[in-house]
Nucleic acid binder design. Structure first.
Lengths: 231, 231
DNA sequence: AGATTTAATATGTATGTACATAATAATCGA
DNA sequence: TCGATTATTATGTACATACATATTAAATCT
């Protein structure tokens, strides 16, 4: 006799969804019925189905029951590694070069990303290059809010990247990402050692501590870079 | 007196992580201790911390306990909507145009994506344009494995997009995504009504039913498109 | 001392029970 | 018949308990 775990219940539910034994749009049996049929407790079924619902493969509503959605919104889990780990995970050696730091008033588009009405105080602007096997890999263009992390002004960013420093030293509460593409401007092309106008994959990230914006960064990856995710 | 829920326990744990009350690299109290301190059962603490661990904000190991990782791998949940929903979610009207369908032998790079040694059978090749407010939005270049979904050959893809048909009619078991950027080739530029060489955000997706590859698709979005995710 | 076995321990999970919550269905009154 | 109220019901969650599992630390043996 095999033991029933919530994983095995989940696997069986997945099988029924994929085999269309539970067709799209259709209602599936109640937790209690499934528990009896599969020979386990309702808690176990609940755990299994709850996870599937979180993944978007089922829709659950109190009293209404559980159904297979007609148009599932697939949720992919994307692991956003620190660039060092991304590079080292590819079996390449990681290196980092600080290109410039300065204190300046952020331009309007950065203010907008940080939800600041107007630039009331200078921020730290960091330009840095991440290298894989000593070849350019990713150009980082970052603005850091001095009002939230004033210590950054005294930090030697030649030793540790702003990315890593912030991850290890700034309490954050929320963040948003946006992926896109852009044509390499002249300065970017120079640093990434690619033709001007080359299509670059970009990752914009803004990070918050409660209601205070900490940092906004744009990462420009070398031509050909791909970011992968599993479903 | 406020009631303790697993959400409130999770919020308190998050607060301690972010406030560095539980510093990076440090061990946090045992479930049993936390349960006593917060006035709830261990099950409730377990549920709260388990979810945080799944999100990458804690590391848990049996006997070793729970610690705050030094270099958290942030996991962003990306919702991959059907393009129709993406467009309609932006408040625009969705439209779809089938540009061409044909049966052909897939080129080597498609075979590779589908993990096929060599093309042993013809597949369906579909080219389609997704429109937002009747303007080009996204060009779809798809190959579909006839051996897995032969019904696609009899389907009228002018009415329903291959994307939607497959979501609703093909049982799938796994998939992988890759995001990137490319320069618009001449044909693509023509359909998307953008300059040749314009930087395009691309999404490659391959879908499987057990060990059988169902489809491989490349979506090319218009210049300026961004895909968003929250953390 | 070094290797192997054994004990201790923190998390992982299953169960039964009880009640909460949300949404639907049924009922009743005007 | 319509609208408001009241039951009903499926999922959501909390708890206590028990045991499983993985891992570490201690103990034991050679």
């Amino acid at each position: 006799m095999t033991i029933i775990t919530w994983q095995s219940v989940q696997a069986e539910a997945l099988r029924r969804i994929r085999s269309r034994e539970w067709p799209p749009g259709g209602q599936i049996p109640h937790e209690a019925d499934l528990a009896e049929e599969l020979g386990c407790s309702r808690g176990t079924v609940n755990r299994a189905l709850r996870d599937l619902a979180e993944a978007g493969l089922l829709e659950r509503r109190r009293k209404a029951g559980t159904r297979v959605p007609l148009n599932p919104v697939r949720k992919a889990t994307l692991e956003i590694p620190i660039i060092r780990q991304d590079v080292e995970g590819r079996g390449q050696s990681y290196n980092y070069r600080l290109l410039s730091t300065r204190e300046a008033t952020p331009p309007p588009e950065i203010c907008e990303k940080l939800s600041l009405k107007k630039p009331d105080a200078p921020m730290v602007h960091v330009l840095a290059l991440h290298l894989a096997d000593d070849a350019p890999f990713c150009l980082e263009d970052r603005w850091i809010n001095l009002q939230v992390v004033p210590e950054i002004a005294q930090t030697d960013l030649t030793e540790i990247s702003a990315n890593e420093w912030l991850v290890q030293n700034a309490a954050f509460s929320a963040g948003s990402f946006a992926f896109g593409a852009m044509a390499a401007p002249e300065a970017t092309a120079k640093w990434l050692d690619c033709p001007i106008g080359a299509p670059l994959f970009t990752l914009d990230r803004t990070t918050w501590a409660a209601a205070l914006p900490i940092t906004s960064v744009r990462l420009c990856y070398i031509p050909g870079y791909q970011m992968r995710a599993e479903i």
